[in-house]
Nucleic acid binder design. Sequence first.
RNA 1: GCCGGCGUAACUCAGUGGUAGAGUAGCUGUUUUGUAAACAGCAAGUCAGAGGUUCGAAUCCUCUCGUCGGCUCCA
Length: 577
Amino acid sequence: MELEHLRHSCSHLMAAAIGQLWPKAKPTLGPAIENGFYYDFDFGEAKIAESDFEKIEEKMHEIVKGWREFEKIEITKEQALKDFKGNEYKEELINDLADGQITYYKSGSFSDLCKGGHVENPSEDLKFFKLLSVAGAYWRGNEKNKMLTRIYGTIFPTQKELDDFIAMKEEAKKRDHRKLGKEMDLFTFSELVGSGLPLYTPKGALMRRLVNEYVESVQSLQGYSQVWTPQIAKADLFKTSGHYDKYKDSMFRVFSNYSDEEFYLKPMNCPQHTQIYASKPRSYKDLPIRLTDFAMLYRDEKPGELSGLARVRAFSQDDCHIFCREDQVDEEVDRALAMTKEIMKTFGLSYKYRLSTRDQEHPEKYIGDPKIWDKTEKWAEEIMKRNNIEYFDGPGEAAFYAPKMDLIAKDSLGREWQLSTVQIDYFLPERFNLTYIDSDGKEKRPVMIHRAIVGSPERFLMVLIEHFGGNFPTWLTPVQAKVLPITENHLEYANKVAEKLKKAGIRAEIDDRNERLQAKIRDAQLSKVSYMFIVGDREAEAGKIAVRKRNGEDLGSKDLEEFIKALRKEIDEKIVN
RNA sequence: GCCGGCGUAACUCAGUGGUAGAGUAGCUGUUUUGUAAACAGCAAGUCAGAGGUUCGAAUCCUCUCGUCGGCUCCA
């Protein structure tokens, strides 16, 4: 039994139940999706909430008992239009179909316009389902169309699989970066500062810095030079690049008090970097020039699109632009891909690539000569093949100026996030009229490679929080060692231990509260510090520490100097444990 | 921006038209503790904000802000 058939069949069942409970609701479309299914309805005046789910599920269980099969019925266009009279959505779908291809699938007394893909024994198969959420969705995905009510649900062949799925969702909730970020004191938001504007507290700011420093350290070995560019730029810059036409509604405007000049907070670094390149004549011998920038970027996202650290209005990127000759593109892209691989490995993230190309149906979305697009899209594909990178196609996912090789990472719960990107761009150099003098003395146009590895360090921090569930590798953990003196009498020794740790560059804190050891351990463990060092009479006398890991494992008595050495190694080698 | 839900102490939440509550965290004492929560006391709130209905509003209505689940968008 195919899972897709199971899910699609269940969407019919849900539509049948809704039809009985809300006879005026107009069913539209109900496909199977990755983790289940949905069905969109126009409920008219009626409102549906999650509190209605129990009632709907009961109805579904009741109806399915009478469903022996899904019977295929071929029908004429005229008859179909007659049957669905008054349901403008189904009418539209029917009119889009060629006569002779219109089929219904009938189960019990419910039949729906459908091209098929169902289970054999609905009354046996459709048992282990659950409705998940209710949401708005535009008819046919177009925001100019009416908004319908979408109900999401899922179904599995067995109760156990359904339970596992629900348990996985619960685990995801526990790891939610918004929850852990608050509990672990990594970042916060303030209504006064504004929505989508995260404030990084000392621990979160530290982690953000550690990620940046790591990326920077890898990059600097590869000949990248850091630059720094202002937070605002004249509108003309973005008009030249094409960003103004495409994105001016999501750029923050800034005005001068003393002139009519119009500025924008920068939403990306590319146009500014072209101006560093253009600041002096370049020789073919100077190339490639690799510029990196970790500056803050600002985008005026629509309010409903903001979410935790996933989608914000202020963020940075580990953004690089490589200006090179056409004959250097292959090597530069290979090197960028290799660097990405190294960095992803350090964080223990698995991933796949997406080849993001143009939307063939909407050529107006892209700038530049389509022939160059043909060339760069094909080139990107060849590069991925040559590097033995598994990828899937992402038609319509390209940037407006270039195709993209996008890295989609999977976290420990199998959820996907777009992080890295590499893009081969011929058009921004053209728009900014960038040149270099080639060996034959003639002016030529450089190619611009856009490249980010973690993408946005802020969003990457979110991925790390959820991937590790807050149990970061020691090199990233804000408090690497918590020293727990058993009583006030052991404070002096605890201080000595902490001093030694700090001298070795290990981030250590002392819990000097007037609490029992159990309480100190509990709090240290909940705060997810890497190691607890317990010190009492026995340790003070022998110059040792009793080490406990955050998972509760007791490592027993250790020599302080030796343990520091081991910790140093764990941190320096960025070991994931 | 659109559809729908939610907003009570620093945090997690109870309170549905009649005197604003609990646990945790905080503070003050007592306790001096050996591997996941000692005990007692104290303090803490414009019930998101504004307007309205009512003798009376955390509770009902309207708007605004924030937030959550989606849709659309994501350089």
